[in-house]
Amino acid sequence: MIRFDKVGFRYDSGPDVLNDIDFELKAGSYHFLTGPSGAGKTSLLSLMYLGHRPTRGNLFMFNQNVGTLPRERLYEIRQKIGIVFQDFRLLGHLSAFDNVALPLRILKRPEKEIRNNVTELLDWVGLGDSKDKLPPTLSGGQQQRIAIARAVITRPKLLLADEPTGNLDDAIGFRLMNLFEQLNRMGTTIVIATHNTHIMEKYGHPRMILAHGNLTLDEHRNKAEETAQGPLTANIKTGTLKHAS
């Protein structure tokens, strides 16, 4: 699904943000990405959703090397990915409904299907009554739920979320985490960047830990993952993370 092969990244001519990252995520896996602030979590996610291209090394997404893929075809990969940005990145002039409908409209789905699916999902995240409201008029938590709804509306193959529960109270936060669990059981690969140890403890998925641009693995979690999902090969030195199954 995703393979980082000695990937390095820096912004323009700045210092390296990520150093020789090596790991592989299998389809259907679920990982937490954690680490201190400024460790490079957002940059790593950005490479995964093709917001940036690696400065060096090879990045494989859906078995395609994004370094050699023509730029005109990268949108095909992006359409398989759902993203929840830390700052939501909603379109402020569009209603909650239109924001969530956007990925479906890009995919040219019929308007009737869009109406049904978006209405249902907004009801599910508790925003059925706010579907015509503009994001700036909603609270941070409500905006976050719109962002999550937009990310999952297409049932993406890969879901990347940057602090998706940061602005939510525990009840709605766990509800949305359950949605991610459900999507994962249906086959969606999930990577969630979070600081929330409570959530990481509760759901117990393997952790990818970033610090100073280097990736390591939480062994304890990997053991748990081995039991739950089959053998996991991990190389702490290189940061390689692989499920054998």
Binding site: Y49, Y75, R89, I106
Partner: peptide, 16 residues
């Protein structure tokens, strides 16, 4: 730019 970037990142092809 911000809005265009959002469309771009959520999978809108350039012609869209």
């Amino acid at each position: 730019r911000n809005q265009v970037e959002i469309l771009h990142l959520i999978g809108a092809p350039d012609p869209y």
